[in-house]
Design a protein around this nucleic acid. Structure first.
Length: 565
RNA sequence: CGGGAAGUAGCUUAACUUGGUAGAGCGCUACGUUCGGGACGUAGAGGUUGCAGGUUCAAAUCCUGUCUUCCCGACCA
């Protein structure tokens, strides 16, 4: 690409409406432009990156034999009503009506239509297995878009689906995809971890996430360096941190704690360690109130609670609801005398002589024990936290945050049952098809790469995704011999299919150096006054030193660099 | 959806407290001098101060409403 006559611009200052590193750098380098909150244009330079990411994905999908197709974004609402997911997605779906008042949605993901498409092909076990995928725009009405391309309302996603005769087949297909995903993210230059996660609204048997490690990641992860255990905090199992105490049980007492409701305040007021306090949280779960008991130092984990109760919806009760349930102000809820089901965390089972709210404003009970109330259910319902050990090997855990760039699900027969996707087996009996689905957020990958590969000058693209592999800078665009040499190199590189920018703009050298650094082109050739001795400079974006090389050896040197020599 | 901040030239912003012709830097145009890390000089173009009301002789500035964007939180397959 010759820069002079191309759509290309850069911004010299930070964009005021992009706080994240990736959002800001992608905007400043003229790769993306915000259209409205959470909706972006991919400009020519940025779209090159998108296409490179897609190329990697397509190659690896091809390798596992998945066929590419394209689904509509506009889908009749009833499709999602039928699968039961219209409700599950709720307000996150964009919905609209046509002129005949028929309701449509903009698809947030495509399990339903893929199931329909699969049905056209499947009648016998002989038709299985196979997998298909698409790269397409998805729409989700996010309550809060943020961090540039990380959380948006319209985004490119690759979604693949596998279809098998049984669980074993699904496991094989899943492993194949899983390995393809590892290759993809490695090729994209993303530093990632694979973690176990919650199956959420997708449902199914198993879910794993591919998480790009980043401080702006919205997902909290625990990782064990010792045994390789890795999980999203939503599902990370908590092991008991204490043994059942043999402390002597003391009689329960009601104490006045005027205006003291928070854990910190209760702890210092009563002079007991926070370890000795149990907090009672009132939740509304599927239209019923529940009391959730966890240790004061712990956080309740809503995903785990949902799973334990088999519930669909969960939210903390509002202030007046809490008052209604406990007959006391917020801060004084407790299990004793409460008229709603009580669910306690495993950890609480091992506690004696603890402190709880008294369901009476300004009062707490001390020396409370499990005999003082009845609970309906217990289980692991808290978030794993600093101090917890690996549930697999018992060693120290590390906490990180990640950007979810991909996920893989073993759906099992959830969708095939709902949508009646069946095949005839060898015994001539009808069976449900076993499905898996596999997603990659393409814009998110782009942002995650920038988050992980940048310096004070700008983006440092990995070679595989860079919009161009090489940039040729003509230091003085008025110098004829420099121009000739640069054009010669440009043609040479093009003839070898090495994507190259020729910066032939009539700008000062500094502007060109800074722009090429900002947009992160991996290899730079500088054609300057050393051209008198037939020499050009080659510099890699991620290295400080440069090398002088003969104009005629430059091409082979570039090829070596690209081949990693 | 709750809390906070901000909307002024293409971009980044000043003036707002205390009402009186909207100013700068970058970018842009022309000419000249320059040309290896965001050049310099001279001369220019470019603004319904987000929008709508209100107060006032007079509103970027004060008041009300509204829209938009960002940040924190809730939510998030």
């Amino acid at each position: 690409m010759r820069l002079k006559r191309s759509y290309f611009y850069t911004l010299r200052q930070d964009a005021k409406d992009e706080e994240s590193i990736s959002g800001n750098l992608l905007t400043r380098s003229g790769m993306i432009k915000k259209s409205s909150s959470g909706v972006y244009m991919y400009l020519p330079m940025g779209y090159k990156v998108i296409k490179n990411i897609e190329k990697v994905i397509r190659e690896e999908m091809e390798n596992v034999g998945a066929g590419e197709l394209l689904m509509p974004a506009l889908v009749p609402e009833e499709t999602y009503v039928l699968s039961g997911r219209r409700k599950a997605f709720g307000a996150d779906m964009f919905s609209l009506k046509d002129r005949f008042d028929k309701s449509y949605v903009l698809a947030p993901t495509h399990e339903e239509l893929f199931t329909v498409a699969a049905a056209s092909k499947i009648s016998s076990y002989k038709d299985l297995p196979f997998s298909i995928y698409q790269i397409q725009d998805k729409f989700r009405d996010e309550a809060r878009s943020r961090y540039g391309l990380i959380r948006v309302r319209e985004f490119l996603m690759k979604d693949a689906y596998s279809f098998d005769v049984d669980e074993k087949g699904l496991n094989d297909s899943y492993n194949e995809m899983y390995n393809a995903y590892k290759k993809i993210f490695t090729r994209l230059g993303i530093n990632y971890r694979i973690v176990k996660s919650d199956t959420g609204a997708m449902g199914g048997l198993l879910s794993e996430e591919f998480q790009a490690i980043s401080p702006i990641g919205e997902d909290k992860l625990v990782i064990c360096d010792e045994c390789g255990y890795a999980a999203n905090i939503d599902v990370a199992k908590c092991m008991a941190m204490i043994e059942k105490s043999d402390e002597e049980i003391r009689p329960r007492e009601l104490v006045m704690t005027k205006d003291i409701g928070s854990i910190d305040d209760v702890s210092s007021f009563l002079n007991v360690s926070k370890d000795k306090i149990v907090k009672t949280l009132i939740y509304k779960i599927d239209d019923k109130f529940y009391a959730i008991l966890v240790k004061g130092i712990h956080e309740a984990n809503e995903a785990k609670i949902k799973k334990l109760l088999g519930a669909n919806e969960i939210r903390l009760a509002e202030k007046q609801e809490v008052e209604e349930v406990t007959h006391a102000s917020v801060g004084f809820a407790g299990p004793i005398g409460l008229d709603v089901p009580i669910v306690i965390d495993n950890e609480v089972l091992n506690m004696v002589n603890f402190v709880v709210g008294a369901n009476k404003t300004d009062y707490h009970y001390v020396n409370v024990n499990l005999d003082d109330f009845t609970y309906d259910l217990c289980g692991d319902i808290r978030c794993i936290t600093n101090g917890d050990v690996c549930p697999k090997c018992g060693k120290k855990l590390e906490f990180k945050t990640g950007i979810e760039v991909g996920n893989t699900f073993k759906l099992g027969t959830k969708y095939s049952e709902k949508m009646n996707l069946t095949y005839l087996n060898k015994e001539n009996e009808s069976d449900f098809v076993w499905m898996g689905c596999y997603g990659i957020g393409i814009g998110r990958c782009m942002a995650a790469i920038v988050e992980q590969h940048n310096d004070d000058k700008g983006i440092v693209w990995p070679l595989e995704v860079a919009p161009f592999k090489v940039a040729i800078i003509i230091v003085n665009s008025l110098d004829e011999s420099q121009n000739d040499a640069a054009n010669y190199l440009y043609k040479e590189l093009k003839s070898q299919n090495i994507s190259t920018i020729l910066d032939d703009r009539n700008e000062r050298a500094g502007v060109k150096f800074n722009d090429m650094d900002l947009i992160g082109i991996p290899i730079r050739i500088t054609v300057g006054n050393k051209i008198k001795e037939q020499l050009v400079e080659i510099k890699q974006r991620d290295k400080n030193e440069f090398e002088d090389i003969s104009l005629y050896d430059a091409l082979s040197r570039i090829e070596d660099i690209i081949d990693g020599i």
